[in-house]
């Protein structure tokens, strides 16, 4: 019964995240869905994954969404859709029906006695996966660093443009000497 409520709540949060008109609201509904999924994982016995999903999926990713939305701007979303709604619903119903046809009913097997614990499976049997995870995390860190660097560069460029505009207005249309020199230096560097 609890699983039914959890799954229904997660799906409702997901639908609200898709239908939300504000990006912030969509990110918050996604976080709610992620938290309910984490609770379901915990009840299923996957404790480590549940904790990581709650901290990363519902915490870190939501912070990243809020950060990106604050940079990109939370415009009101267009009501027009990418493809006709009926066609999309038909494709999704076909997708879910095919999945259910292939996977259900599940043949529940008893837990393998003497099976390796999670730590051994992760660090020994799936060691290559851990290596790939390290590479992926490094890639993500580089992406965030690039994002922050571009943000700083854009802010510096805007400030320079404002100073140039103010200087040109104050000098009655004469361009100040330093920005021209700076531009010339930039051209020389590019050449």
């Amino acid at each position: 019964m609890a699983y039914g409520f959890l799954m229904a709540g997660a799906v409702v949060c997901a639908v609200l995240a898709i239908r939300a008109r504000q990006l912030i609201a969509a990110a918050l509904w996604l976080a709610g869905s992620s938290a309910l999924v984490a609770l379901a994982l915990y009840l299923l016995g996957a404790h480590q994954v549940a904790v990581i999903e709650l901290s990363v999926g519902a915490g870190l990713v939501t912070v990243l969404f809020v950060f990106a939305i604050s940079i990109a701007g939370d415009d009101a979303l267009s009501k027009r859709e990418f493809m006709p709604n009926g066609l999309a619903v038909g494709a999704v119903v076909t997708f879910c029906a095919l999945l259910a046809w292939q996977a259900l009913p599940l043949e529940a097997r008893p837990t393998v006695t003497g099976a390796a614990p999670f730590q051994q499976v992760l660090w020994s049997d799936r060691a290559l996966d851990v290596l790939v995870q390290l590479v992926l995390i490094f890639t993500g860190v580089l992406c965030v660093l690039g994002l922050l660097k571009e943000t700083t560069a854009a802010a510096t460029g805007n400030a320079l443009q404002e100073v140039q505009a103010a200087a040109s207005h104050s000098a009655n249309g004469h361009r100040p000497a330093e920005p021209v020199a700076a531009e010339r230096t930039g051209v020389e560097e590019r050449a």
Binding site: L41, A46, V61, F118, V121, R126, V132, Q133, G140, C143
Partner: peptide
């Protein structure tokens, strides 16, 4: 369902990391 909870958890952990990146 297949009785290999640890393997499912391990794969799910990889999916979480890849999804975040």
């Amino acid at each position: 369902a297949s009785g290999q909870v640890a393997l499912g958890e391990s794969l799910a952990l990889t999916v979480v990391v890849a999804d975040t990146v």
